Simulated assay, not measured.
Amino acid sequence: MESDDWGSIRIPDLAAKNRLMDLGLLSVHDPFSKFDTLESADDLEALFSVLNQFNDEKGNSPVITANIVVGNPDFQKIKYSDFSEYYFEAFTQTYQNLSVGVDPFSVMQKGIDEGLFFPQYHAREHLNVSTWMQLLQSGDEAFRKAFESGCFSIDYKARGNRRNNLMAAYDYNTVEDLSFIRRSISEGLALFEQHFQFKSITTIAPCYVWDAAIEDIFLENGVAVFQGSRFQNTPQPNSSDFKKIFHYNGEKVKEKVYLSRNGLFEPSINQNIHWVDKAMESIATAFAWNKPAVIGTHRLNYVGSLVPENRDRNLRTLAQLLTQVLQKWPDVEFVNSAELADLYQ
């Protein structure tokens, strides 16, 4: 199970969410705007409680490969610079700024020690910083209002923007943008190692947007395994579209290895889908072809500060899925993405 976005602010709190929705800056129909927010200690404890109920025949619990965003914008410093400079803070600092009670990082460490939670590198920040700073510096009214609420993840449907927001950290058009990304990756990987005391073996690009130049930067930094969906979104200069590149599980290109998600468990995205049946069908298809099942399941399914009942419902559904998996395939093995990559390598 690969799960993205841990550590990122996204929607700071319920008050900010309601304010930005009232202003029309967030869509009430967007699940990420409705549910996704910084994880709390309670969120992590609730997730680990479910995972701890299950074991494969080797005694391993189901493990979430948690792709971590290791930094967030430092809104205060950026404001004090009059938007002339970009500053970021470590995700652990964001925990201290926004969390109440138990430190989420201490709970996360417990989950790591118990083999339930395996961090890997997502990005330094889940944000196209260059474009965001240009908008702030130009006085863009929408992004300035969102900034005052500690939020950058509002809708942005502008001509020339290849997505409807600024969440694709590695979407770029200029050499200067690529230079910024290069520095952010190097600094982000160092920050990851500083906090977790090991190097990230794999990475996944925010929004599945990256190109060969981004891969080269990761290779220079010792990361050669790229998680993703079936399709890589490659930025095209002077184009409003991405070029789609297909990847399959275990694909090797020279020293690079690609892991491709061949199933989904995303109950927050569409609550009209029977996600247990959908995931079971995907797993069965993968196993029928003697392939590993790699299930994509984003953080928004497991955080409850904005809508607690959504988290609780999804955790019950996750327990149902794991129960059925073990019943149908008692010899199933639970592994993290680095272990899977090692088998391919």
Rank of each mutant, 00 (worst) to 15 (best):
Q197Y: 12
N18P: 01
T202G: 02
G296Y: 04
E309Y: 09
F35V: 03
Q137G: 13
W6D: 04
E148Q: 14
F287I: 05
L178H: 03
V223T: 07
V223E: 03
A123F: 05
S27C: 07
K79G: 07
F48Y: 13
Y80T: 11
Y258H: 05
E114G: 01
N60H: 15
T94F: 01
R163T: 15
P31I: 04
F88C: 11
D155R: 12
I245L: 12
C207Y: 08
Q53C: 14
Q271S: 15
E89S: 10
Q236A: 06
F231K: 03
F35S: 00
G139A: 06
N161A: 09
Y172P: 02
L343R: 15
Q53F: 04
D82P: 00
T131D: 10
L300M: 14
F226V: 04
S99H: 11
D171E: 11
V307S: 09
I78M: 15
D74Q: 05
F265K: 01
N52D: 15
F246H: 11
Q137P: 01
Y121L: 06
P31M: 05
D113P: 00
N164F: 11
A190H: 07
Q76M: 06
V332S: 00
I181H: 00
K145W: 03
L340F: 08
D241N: 09
I154L: 11
A338T: 06
W210Q: 12
G115N: 05
H274I: 13
A41Y: 02
A66K: 01
K252L: 07
Q96I: 08
S40I: 02
A319R: 12
G59V: 10
F147T: 08
Q76F: 09
W275P: 02
G304I: 08
V100C: 09
E2F: 08
P104Q: 09
A190T: 12
E39G: 04
S229E: 13
R124W: 01
S186L: 07
F198H: 13
A288L: 11
K34V: 10
S61Q: 14
Q76I: 11
S153K: 07
I295G: 00
R163E: 11
A213V: 04
F287C: 07
T297V: 01
V223L: 09
E125Q: 14
C207R: 13
T285D: 14
F54Y: 14
R183C: 07
A15G: 03
P104Y: 06
S200A: 15
Q232H: 05
D103R: 06
I185P: 03
V70M: 15
L264G: 00
A205I: 04
K110Q: 15
A212R: 09
S337E: 12
Q109R: 14
N238F: 12
Q345H: 15
A142C: 06
E176N: 10
L14Y: 09
N55W: 06
E220A: 14
E89M: 14
H274G: 08
D56K: 07
V307M: 08
P267T: 08
Q194S: 13
S282H: 11
F91Y: 11
G263R: 01
Q327T: 14
N72H: 08
A293D: 06
D103H: 12
R124I: 09
F117S: 01
K278H: 13
L259D: 03
Q134R: 15
Q137C: 07
N336M: 01
A41L: 09
P237I: 04
G115E: 05
G263F: 03
L191Q: 14
F91T: 03
K17I: 01
H274M: 14
E176T: 12
H126L: 10
I181W: 02
